[in-house]
Nucleic acid binder design. Structure first.
Lengths: 241, 241
DNA sequence: AAAGACAAAAATGAATGCAATTTATGCCGA
DNA sequence: TCGGCATAAATTGCATTCATTTTTGTCTTT
């Protein structure tokens, strides 16, 4: 249970309500603000608010049990991240992603993954490659069995592992930020229904893994970018169909 | 005059103290917060605050003539951008970039430029290429005359033009954000003293322009990444020497 | 004299209050 | 009945206030 949800206003902090985890339990003595920020981000990413709908501050304050000041601070940060937009004197609304926005975001994700692949080839260990191969083979099994959900999870894991293998914290953070932004539509951007695309994606992953094994950075970079490109195109076709 | 400077609290509308930071003229009277955010960002990027030094909120409030609430909102955003760090209960300080931070930032910039080159090849017009070539030739003249400052300006322009040619607003914004983060050290990361590196950089730019002319996206992508890599290495050597 | 302890002062985190802008409601006239 | 306008309610932006934590300064003790 999160502090954000349980903490009440400062006037009566004498007895904590039942069910509250002692503040000390929070391993990181994170400030209330940071916790709220994370909670609010999840809340939005998970789609609890409608696209473009108004978000009265008061409502969120009540929901999270805090006053407007820390909430507004969090909103400013989320606006800077591009998750919501703040209209002067007219409140916050969830930023609806246009087709162009999606195209741009996918391409930037592709660029970041391309970079990750390039960097990973410079420093990835054989053990790391083996680990990625293991997940790849798991994924292949799920592909054969048409177990979409598990396949998808492995897929995400592989991409994340490549990004981590790059050993660049700035890259990881940036990648995570963009991943959050498109998460709302990512599931719909799925290749669940398109079997041809699914098989193609598997072949692309084979090539990606092969390039990684050979530490062919530049080649892997191209492959990852194209892989994301194709994923985007599939998603767009899906959206239209 | 700017809203930031003119707005005073109700009780004390006396003349402003000398030495107040002149914020930008209110071209967009959008919101006080945005204006403050931009002003504060510039203020930090331009190095008006020492690395790692404490930044008392009160000082900044006085300097910008506002109360703590909007200031703190801006600080949260700047912290999210990575420009400053916020220690719980211990205020904000300018984030000092370690050697590792710089390595990571340069590599991410390289990845973004590589992406920009790839995208630019897909959609750049002949006129745009011609425009870039023009600046390139200007730059070459400055190189021959050893006019470092103008050379540097052209160099920056070319990189910016390639990013713009990619036609991806998300990429442009991301690139600009990272550029701001390393701007504090960018000038020191200069090739002013290293003539060999300077000539090498010119040759790299020739190759970059050639790849762009041929719309060789993948090749241009590699060239741009390596160009940034080399720039980083030169900067690191500079810093050590 | 140096180190530690205690108290005062300052700074931060969060809540509340107030003025200004926006949105909603009701009234009037066509 | 519908549209325009005036007023009221709600919402936002910012300032101020309060409580807690950190820092500073002084005094005591060894």
């Amino acid at each position: 249970m999160s502090m954000v949800l349980d903490t009440q206003n400062g006037s009566d902090v004498t007895a904590e309500p039942a069910g509250v985890i002692p503040a000390e339990a929070a391993r990181a003595p994170a400030t209330l603000h940071d916790e709220l920020l994370a909670a609010l981000r999840d809340y939005i990413v998970e789609g609890n608010l409608d696209d473009g709908a108004r978000i009265p501050e008061r409502l969120l304050c009540d929901r999270f049990g805090i006053s407007r000041t820390p909430l507004r601070e969090a909103l400013k940060v989320l606006a800077a991240e591009g998750l919501i937009e703040l209209l002067p004197n007219r409140g916050a609304r969830v930023r609806a992603l246009s087709a162009d926005d999606l195209r741009e975001l996918f391409d930037v994700m592709g660029g970041l993954e391309a970079l990750a692949g390039r960097l990973a080839c410079e420093r990835v260990s054989d053990a790391d490659v083996a680990e990625i191969e293991r997940v790849h083979h798991d994924m292949y099994r799920f592909y054969l069995r048409r177990e979409m959900h598990d396949y998808f999870r492995c897929n995400q894991d592989i991409h994340r592992m490549i990004v981590e293998a790059a050993g660049n914290a700035v890259l990881s953070a940036t990648y995570a930020s963009f991943a959050g932004r498109i998460r709302r539509v990512r599931y719909s951007a799925n290749l669940a229904t398109d079997r041809d695309r699914w098989g193609e994606a598997m072949r692309e992953h084979e090539a990606i893994l092969d390039a990684l094994r050979r530490r062919a950075g530049s080649e892997l970079s191209d492959l990852l970018f194209q892989h994301l490109r194709n994923k985007r195109k599939a998603a767009q076709a899906e959206a239209k169909g």
